Amino acid sequence: RLTFTDQMAKAIFHVLDTRAPYGTYDCTGSGAVKSWADIAKACFGAANGNADRVVPVSTEKYYASAEGPIAPRPRFSALDLSKLESTGFSPRDWEDELAEYLKELRA
């Protein structure tokens, strides 16, 4: 899920203003977890109708020709919003945020 700066700022101020317990809070938009390829398809589809030209590539294939050490990446890296949501903050759906952002870019 994508994270938009307006939601990140609102989450930070919410945690501070409500004096939520000290700790680490994950923050992303809410909604469905998607791959980077799915996100790229949504962007290209909205921008120019070329979503079908986006080709997913595995991490292994992407780094196959890389030289030097590669930092390991988790197979599934969606952040857990439950701690943030337990403070009463509900992030907006990232797909709604993306649609609004892309609409503003085209305006």
Rank of each mutant, 00 (worst) to 15 (best):
N48D: 15
K34I: 13
A46E: 04
R92S: 13
A47L: 15
V57A: 05
R53A: 07
L81T: 11
L79C: 13
E97P: 03
W36I: 12
A99R: 14
A46S: 12
P72L: 02
P91T: 03
V55P: 06
A42P: 09
V33Q: 06
A46P: 03
G88N: 03
C43N: 11
A40N: 13
S35E: 11
P69I: 08
A46I: 01
T59Y: 05
A51W: 02
R53N: 04
A99N: 11
A99S: 15
A46G: 00
A78M: 01
E97G: 10
P69S: 13
P91E: 03
V54T: 06
S86L: 05
T87M: 03
T87F: 03
W94R: 02
K34V: 13
N50A: 09
S65R: 09
V54G: 01
I70N: 02
S86N: 11
T87C: 05
S65L: 06
D38E: 15
T59F: 07
L98W: 07
E85D: 03
S35K: 11
G88T: 11
F44Q: 05
L79E: 08
A42T: 08
D38R: 01
K83N: 11
A66F: 13
A46T: 07
Y63K: 01
F76H: 15
G68P: 07
A51T: 08
L81P: 14
D96N: 12
A66C: 12
A37C: 09
E97L: 14
I39M: 08
